[in-house]
Computed example of a mutant assay.
Amino acid sequence: MSDAAIDTLPGIGPVTQSRLADAGIRTVSELRSMGSVEAYRRLKFMLPRQVSLNAPYALEAALRGCHWLDLPQDVKAALQEQAKITDEAFRRGGVARCAL
Score class of each variant (00 low, 15 high):
M1N: 14
S2P: 14
S2Q: 14
D3N: 15
D3G: 13
A4S: 15
I6N: 08
T8Y: 11
L9Q: 05
L9F: 01
P10R: 13
P10Q: 12
P10F: 10
I12G: 12
I12Y: 07
G13K: 00
P14E: 12
T16K: 06
S18A: 09
R19D: 02
R19G: 06
R19A: 01
L20D: 07
A21R: 02
R26Y: 03
T27I: 02
S29L: 05
S29D: 10
E30S: 09
E30P: 07
E30A: 11
R32K: 15
M34T: 11
G35A: 11
S36W: 03
S36G: 15
V37F: 04
V37G: 07
E38K: 15
E38Y: 04
E38H: 10
E38N: 14
A39Q: 08
Y40W: 01
K44C: 05
F45Y: 10
F45R: 15
F45Q: 02
M46S: 05
M46F: 05
L47M: 08
R49T: 07
Q50N: 07
Q50Y: 05
N54G: 06
N54H: 08
A55D: 01
P56D: 00
Y57L: 07
A58T: 07
A58S: 10
L59I: 02
L59V: 03
L59W: 03
E60F: 02
A62C: 01
G65F: 01
G65I: 00
H67E: 09
H67W: 05
W68R: 02
W68K: 01
W68I: 00
W68V: 03
L69W: 11
D70H: 13
D70C: 08
L71H: 05
P72S: 14
Q73M: 05
D74G: 01
V75C: 05
V75T: 08
K76I: 06
A78K: 07
Q80K: 08
Q82D: 14
K84Q: 14
K84H: 01
I85S: 07
I85V: 08
E88M: 06
E88Q: 09
E88F: 05
A89Q: 12
F90A: 02
R91H: 13
R91N: 12
R91P: 12
R91T: 12
R92Y: 10
G93E: 13
G94S: 12
G94Y: 15
G94E: 11
L100V: 08
